[in-house]
Protein backbone atom coordinates (compact mmCIF):
# COMPACT_ATOMS: atom_id res chain seq x y z
CA UNK A 1 0.00 0.00 0.00
CA UNK A 2 2.86 2.35 0.90
CA UNK A 3 4.43 1.45 -2.42
CA UNK A 4 1.20 2.38 -4.19
CA UNK A 5 0.98 5.72 -2.39
CA UNK A 6 4.58 6.46 -3.27
CA UNK A 7 3.83 5.71 -6.90
CA UNK A 8 0.82 8.00 -6.97
CA UNK A 9 2.51 11.34 -7.81
CA UNK A 10 4.24 9.71 -10.77
CA UNK A 11 0.98 8.14 -11.85
CA UNK A 12 -0.70 11.53 -11.54
CA UNK A 13 1.88 13.22 -13.75
CA UNK A 14 1.56 10.49 -16.35
CA UNK A 15 -2.20 10.62 -15.98
CA UNK A 16 -2.21 14.34 -16.71
CA UNK A 17 -0.02 13.85 -19.78
CA UNK A 18 -2.44 11.23 -21.11
CA UNK A 19 -5.26 13.46 -19.95
CA UNK A 20 -4.01 16.20 -22.27
CA UNK A 21 -4.17 13.66 -25.06
CA UNK A 22 -7.70 12.82 -23.94
CA UNK A 23 -8.63 16.49 -24.42
CA UNK A 24 -7.65 16.01 -28.05
CA UNK A 25 -9.80 12.88 -28.21
CA UNK A 26 -12.66 14.80 -26.57
CA UNK A 27 -12.66 17.30 -29.44
CA UNK A 28 -13.24 14.63 -32.07
CA UNK A 29 -15.18 12.06 -30.06
CA UNK A 30 -17.49 14.36 -28.12
CA UNK A 31 -17.64 17.65 -30.01
CA UNK A 32 -17.32 16.43 -33.59
CA UNK A 33 -19.03 13.11 -32.82
CA UNK A 34 -16.56 10.94 -34.72
CA UNK A 35 -14.03 8.45 -33.42
CA UNK A 36 -10.69 9.55 -34.87
CA UNK A 37 -8.13 6.74 -34.70
CA UNK A 38 -5.35 8.95 -36.08
CA UNK A 39 -4.29 9.56 -32.49
CA UNK A 40 -2.57 6.18 -32.20
CA UNK A 41 -0.16 7.46 -34.83
CA UNK A 42 -0.06 11.18 -34.15
CA UNK A 43 0.77 10.65 -30.47
CA UNK A 44 3.96 8.88 -31.53
CA UNK A 45 4.57 11.49 -34.21
CA UNK A 46 4.54 14.17 -31.53
CA UNK A 47 6.98 12.26 -29.34
CA UNK A 48 9.26 11.38 -32.23
CA UNK A 49 9.28 14.93 -33.60
CA UNK A 50 10.17 16.44 -30.25
CA UNK A 51 13.04 14.03 -29.60
CA UNK A 52 14.31 14.41 -33.13
CA UNK A 53 14.19 18.21 -32.93
CA UNK A 54 15.82 18.35 -29.51
CA UNK A 55 18.62 15.96 -30.41
CA UNK A 56 19.32 17.91 -33.57
CA UNK A 57 19.83 21.07 -31.53
CA UNK A 58 16.51 22.91 -31.47
CA UNK A 59 15.32 24.61 -28.29
CA UNK A 60 12.43 23.34 -26.23
CA UNK A 61 9.73 25.85 -27.32
CA UNK A 62 10.50 25.36 -31.00
CA UNK A 63 10.61 21.58 -30.61
CA UNK A 64 7.22 21.61 -28.89
CA UNK A 65 5.83 23.78 -31.66
CA UNK A 66 7.20 21.39 -34.29
CA UNK A 67 5.64 18.43 -32.49
CA UNK A 68 2.30 20.26 -32.37
CA UNK A 69 2.50 21.12 -36.08
CA UNK A 70 3.44 17.55 -36.99
CA UNK A 71 0.30 16.37 -35.21
CA UNK A 72 -1.74 19.02 -37.01
CA UNK A 73 -0.37 17.77 -40.33
CA UNK A 74 -1.44 14.23 -39.46
CA UNK A 75 -4.90 15.49 -38.58
CA UNK A 76 -5.08 17.42 -41.83
CA UNK A 77 -4.47 14.20 -43.79
CA UNK A 78 -7.26 12.40 -41.95
CA UNK A 79 -9.55 15.38 -42.43
CA UNK A 80 -8.91 15.43 -46.17
CA UNK A 81 -9.34 11.67 -46.47
CA UNK A 82 -12.66 11.93 -44.68
CA UNK A 83 -14.17 15.02 -46.29
CA UNK A 84 -12.63 15.17 -49.77
CA UNK A 85 -12.06 11.46 -50.45
CA UNK A 86 -15.36 10.40 -48.89
CA UNK A 87 -13.72 7.80 -46.64
CA UNK A 88 -15.61 7.07 -43.41
CA UNK A 89 -13.95 8.86 -40.49
CA UNK A 90 -12.87 5.70 -38.66
CA UNK A 91 -11.26 4.21 -41.75
CA UNK A 92 -9.62 7.53 -42.65
CA UNK A 93 -8.06 7.60 -39.18
CA UNK A 94 -6.85 4.02 -39.48
CA UNK A 95 -5.23 4.77 -42.85
CA UNK A 96 -3.40 7.81 -41.52
CA UNK A 97 -2.37 5.94 -38.40
CA UNK A 98 -0.93 3.11 -40.50
CA UNK A 99 0.96 5.51 -42.71
CA UNK A 100 2.25 7.38 -39.68
CA UNK A 101 3.97 4.24 -38.43
CA UNK A 102 6.40 4.50 -41.35
CA UNK A 103 6.63 8.26 -40.94
CA UNK A 104 7.46 7.91 -37.26
CA UNK A 105 10.16 5.35 -38.04
CA UNK A 106 11.62 7.84 -40.52
CA UNK A 107 11.56 10.67 -38.00
CA UNK A 108 13.23 8.54 -35.33
CA UNK A 109 15.65 6.93 -37.78
CA UNK A 110 14.95 3.63 -36.02
CA UNK A 111 12.55 2.00 -33.58
CA UNK A 112 13.42 4.41 -30.78
CA UNK A 113 15.52 7.42 -29.90
CA UNK A 114 16.82 8.40 -26.47
CA UNK A 115 16.45 11.87 -25.02
CA UNK A 116 18.86 12.06 -22.11
CA UNK A 117 17.77 14.26 -19.22
CA UNK A 118 21.45 14.86 -18.44
CA UNK A 119 22.17 16.33 -21.84
CA UNK A 120 18.96 18.34 -22.29
CA UNK A 121 16.87 20.45 -20.00
CA UNK A 122 13.51 18.69 -20.04
CA UNK A 123 10.18 20.09 -18.91
CA UNK A 124 8.97 16.85 -17.40
CA UNK A 125 10.88 13.75 -16.36
CA UNK A 126 10.19 10.77 -14.17
CA UNK A 127 13.30 11.55 -12.16
CA UNK A 128 11.85 14.91 -11.12
CA UNK A 129 8.32 13.99 -10.30
CA UNK A 130 7.12 17.03 -8.36
CA UNK A 131 8.45 19.76 -10.70
CA UNK A 132 7.06 17.68 -13.56
CA UNK A 133 3.66 17.63 -11.92
CA UNK A 134 3.66 21.42 -11.74
CA UNK A 135 4.63 21.70 -15.40
CA UNK A 136 1.89 19.24 -16.38
CA UNK A 137 -0.71 21.24 -14.48
CA UNK A 138 0.45 24.50 -16.10
CA UNK A 139 0.22 22.91 -19.56
CA UNK A 140 -3.25 21.63 -18.81
CA UNK A 141 -4.46 25.00 -17.57
CA UNK A 142 -3.09 26.79 -20.64
CA UNK A 143 -4.59 24.27 -23.09
CA UNK A 144 -7.98 24.27 -21.38
CA UNK A 145 -7.91 28.07 -21.25
CA UNK A 146 -7.22 28.38 -24.97
CA UNK A 147 -9.86 25.81 -25.87
CA UNK A 148 -12.41 27.45 -23.59
CA UNK A 149 -11.84 30.70 -25.40
CA UNK A 150 -11.83 29.09 -28.83
CA UNK A 151 -15.06 27.18 -28.38
CA UNK A 152 -16.72 30.37 -27.19
CA UNK A 153 -15.97 32.17 -30.44
CA UNK A 154 -18.11 32.22 -33.55
CA UNK A 155 -15.87 29.66 -35.17
CA UNK A 156 -15.89 27.47 -32.07
CA UNK A 157 -19.68 27.58 -31.99
CA UNK A 158 -19.83 26.61 -35.64
CA UNK A 159 -17.56 23.61 -34.91
CA UNK A 160 -19.88 22.49 -32.14
CA UNK A 161 -22.91 22.87 -34.40
CA UNK A 162 -21.14 20.81 -37.08
CA UNK A 163 -20.70 17.92 -34.66
CA UNK A 164 -24.14 18.26 -33.15
CA UNK A 165 -26.30 18.64 -36.26
CA UNK A 166 -24.58 18.91 -39.62
CA UNK A 167 -27.77 19.61 -41.62
CA UNK A 168 -28.67 22.46 -39.31
CA UNK A 169 -25.12 23.78 -39.55
CA UNK A 170 -25.21 23.80 -43.35
CA UNK A 171 -28.66 25.38 -43.39
CA UNK A 172 -27.14 28.18 -41.35
CA UNK A 173 -24.29 28.69 -43.77
CA UNK A 174 -21.60 26.70 -41.98
CA UNK A 175 -19.02 24.88 -44.08
CA UNK A 176 -19.19 21.53 -42.31
CA UNK A 177 -16.40 19.83 -44.28
CA UNK A 178 -13.98 22.62 -43.49
CA UNK A 179 -14.99 22.57 -39.84
CA UNK A 180 -14.44 18.84 -39.58
CA UNK A 181 -10.94 19.27 -40.97
CA UNK A 182 -10.19 22.10 -38.53
CA UNK A 183 -11.40 20.09 -35.54
CA UNK A 184 -9.41 16.99 -36.51
CA UNK A 185 -6.30 19.15 -37.03
CA UNK A 186 -6.70 20.80 -33.64
CA UNK A 187 -7.35 17.49 -31.93
CA UNK A 188 -4.26 15.80 -33.34
CA UNK A 189 -2.08 18.84 -32.62
CA UNK A 190 -2.98 18.52 -28.94
CA UNK A 191 -2.47 14.75 -29.04
CA UNK A 192 1.00 15.24 -30.52
CA UNK A 193 1.82 17.82 -27.86
CA UNK A 194 0.92 15.27 -25.24
CA UNK A 195 3.16 12.72 -27.01
CA UNK A 196 5.96 15.28 -26.89
CA UNK A 197 5.51 15.55 -23.12
CA UNK A 198 5.45 11.78 -22.63
CA UNK A 199 8.68 11.29 -24.58
CA UNK A 200 10.35 13.75 -22.20
CA UNK A 201 8.81 12.05 -19.20
CA UNK A 202 10.14 8.62 -20.15
CA UNK A 203 13.36 9.98 -21.70
CA UNK A 204 12.89 8.44 -25.14
CA UNK A 205 10.50 8.24 -28.05
CA UNK A 206 9.42 4.88 -29.33
CA UNK A 207 7.61 3.96 -32.52
CA UNK A 208 5.04 2.02 -30.49
CA UNK A 209 4.41 4.65 -27.85
CA UNK A 210 1.03 5.65 -29.29
CA UNK A 211 -0.35 2.16 -29.62
CA UNK A 212 -3.72 2.04 -27.90
CA UNK A 213 -3.69 5.78 -27.25
CA UNK A 214 -7.26 6.13 -28.53
CA UNK A 215 -8.45 3.59 -25.97
CA UNK A 216 -6.70 5.41 -23.12
CA UNK A 217 -8.13 8.68 -24.41
CA UNK A 218 -11.65 7.26 -24.56
CA UNK A 219 -11.18 5.77 -21.10
CA UNK A 220 -10.22 9.18 -19.73
CA UNK A 221 -13.12 10.89 -21.49
CA UNK A 222 -15.63 8.33 -20.25
CA UNK A 223 -14.27 8.12 -16.70
CA UNK A 224 -14.24 11.91 -16.57
CA UNK A 225 -17.84 11.99 -17.69
CA UNK A 226 -19.06 9.28 -15.37
CA UNK A 227 -17.38 10.72 -12.27
CA UNK A 228 -17.60 14.45 -12.93
CA UNK A 229 -20.34 14.71 -15.55
CA UNK A 230 -23.06 15.41 -13.00
CA UNK A 231 -21.19 18.27 -11.33
CA UNK A 232 -19.19 19.78 -14.21
CA UNK A 233 -21.42 21.50 -16.76
CA UNK A 234 -19.21 24.35 -17.82
CA UNK A 235 -17.05 23.49 -20.85
CA UNK A 236 -13.71 24.27 -19.13
CA UNK A 237 -14.71 22.17 -16.14
CA UNK A 238 -15.72 19.31 -18.40
CA UNK A 239 -12.28 19.37 -20.02
CA UNK A 240 -10.80 19.38 -16.50
CA UNK A 241 -12.97 16.35 -15.80
CA UNK A 242 -11.41 14.62 -18.81
CA UNK A 243 -7.91 15.27 -17.47
CA UNK A 244 -9.00 14.02 -14.05
CA UNK A 245 -10.31 10.95 -15.87
CA UNK A 246 -6.77 10.42 -17.16
CA UNK A 247 -5.40 10.67 -13.64
CA UNK A 248 -7.96 8.20 -12.29
CA UNK A 249 -7.16 5.84 -15.13
CA UNK A 250 -3.45 5.91 -14.34
CA UNK A 251 -4.01 5.57 -10.61
CA UNK A 252 -6.08 2.46 -11.26
CA UNK A 253 -3.47 1.06 -13.64
CA UNK A 254 -0.73 1.67 -11.09
CA UNK A 255 -2.84 0.00 -8.45
CA UNK A 256 -3.54 -3.17 -10.42
CA UNK A 257 0.11 -3.40 -11.43
CA UNK A 258 1.02 -3.20 -7.74
CA UNK A 259 -1.44 -6.00 -7.09
CA UNK A 260 0.69 -8.11 -9.35
CA UNK A 261 -0.99 -7.88 -12.75
CA UNK A 262 1.32 -8.77 -15.60
CA UNK A 263 2.13 -5.53 -17.46
CA UNK A 264 1.64 -7.37 -20.73
CA UNK A 265 -2.02 -7.90 -19.90
CA UNK A 266 -2.64 -4.17 -19.41
CA UNK A 267 -3.90 -3.46 -22.90
CA UNK A 268 -6.44 -6.27 -22.66
CA UNK A 269 -7.62 -4.90 -19.34
CA UNK A 270 -7.92 -1.37 -20.78
CA UNK A 271 -9.89 -2.62 -23.75
CA UNK A 272 -12.31 -4.53 -21.52
CA UNK A 273 -12.78 -1.58 -19.17
CA UNK A 274 -13.48 0.85 -22.02
CA UNK A 275 -15.84 -1.61 -23.71
CA UNK A 276 -17.84 -1.94 -20.51
CA UNK A 277 -17.95 1.81 -19.91
CA UNK A 278 -19.11 2.40 -23.48
CA UNK A 279 -21.79 -0.25 -23.09
CA UNK A 280 -23.21 0.96 -19.79
CA UNK A 281 -25.12 3.99 -21.13
CA UNK A 282 -26.56 1.82 -23.91
CA UNK A 283 -27.66 -0.89 -21.50
CA UNK A 284 -29.13 1.70 -19.19
CA UNK A 285 -31.19 3.17 -21.99
CA UNK A 286 -32.34 -0.21 -23.28
CA UNK A 287 -33.30 -1.21 -19.74
CA UNK A 288 -35.30 1.94 -19.05
CA UNK A 289 -37.07 1.68 -22.42
CA UNK A 290 -37.99 -1.92 -21.69
CA UNK A 291 -39.29 -0.90 -18.31
CA UNK A 292 -41.44 1.92 -19.63
CA UNK A 293 -42.81 -0.43 -22.26
CA UNK A 294 -43.65 -2.97 -19.60
CA UNK A 295 -45.36 -0.27 -17.54
CA UNK A 296 -47.47 0.75 -20.54
CA UNK A 297 -48.49 -2.84 -21.17
CA UNK A 298 -49.55 -3.26 -17.56
CA UNK A 299 -51.69 -0.16 -17.82
Amino acid sequence: MIGFLNALPGAAAQGIIWGIMAIGVYITYKILDIADLTVDGSFGTGGATLVMCMTSGMGMPLSLLMAFLAGCAAGFITGILHTKFGIPAILAGILTQLGLYSVNLRILGGANLTLSDRKYKLLVNLKNIYPSLVVCVIFTVIIIGILYWFFGTEMGHSLRATGCNASMARANGINTSRNQIIAIILSNGIVALSGALLSQWQGFADVNMGRGAIVIGLAAVIIGEVIFGKIFHNFALRLTGVVCGGIVYYAVITFVLRLGLNANDLKLLSAVVVAVFLAVPYWKKAWSENRSKAVREVK
Binding site: E154, N172, G173
Partner: peptide, 30 residues
Protein backbone atom coordinates in the same frame (compact mmCIF):
# COMPACT_ATOMS: atom_id res chain seq x y z
CA UNK B 1 -38.30 19.25 -35.34
CA UNK B 2 -34.93 17.69 -34.47
CA UNK B 3 -33.38 18.82 -37.73
CA UNK B 4 -33.51 22.59 -37.51
CA UNK B 5 -31.65 23.10 -34.24
CA UNK B 6 -28.53 21.80 -32.52
CA UNK B 7 -29.87 19.77 -29.57
CA UNK B 8 -26.76 19.89 -27.40
CA UNK B 9 -26.43 23.65 -27.66
CA UNK B 10 -28.28 26.30 -25.73
CA UNK B 11 -31.19 28.33 -27.05
CA UNK B 12 -29.06 31.49 -27.24
CA UNK B 13 -26.21 29.60 -28.90
CA UNK B 14 -28.55 28.27 -31.56
CA UNK B 15 -29.95 31.73 -32.17
CA UNK B 16 -26.48 33.26 -32.39
CA UNK B 17 -25.54 30.65 -34.98
CA UNK B 18 -28.61 31.53 -37.03
CA UNK B 19 -27.92 35.24 -36.64
CA UNK B 20 -24.64 34.81 -38.50
CA UNK B 21 -26.07 32.94 -41.47
CA UNK B 22 -24.17 33.97 -44.56
CA UNK B 23 -21.50 35.84 -42.61
CA UNK B 24 -17.88 34.98 -41.96
CA UNK B 25 -17.38 33.29 -38.62
CA UNK B 26 -14.16 34.40 -37.06
CA UNK B 27 -12.63 34.52 -33.61
CA UNK B 28 -14.98 37.10 -32.17
CA UNK B 29 -17.05 36.13 -29.16
CA UNK B 30 -20.02 34.09 -30.41
Amino acid sequence: PMMGTAADMWIEENMALAGRRGQKRGLRWA
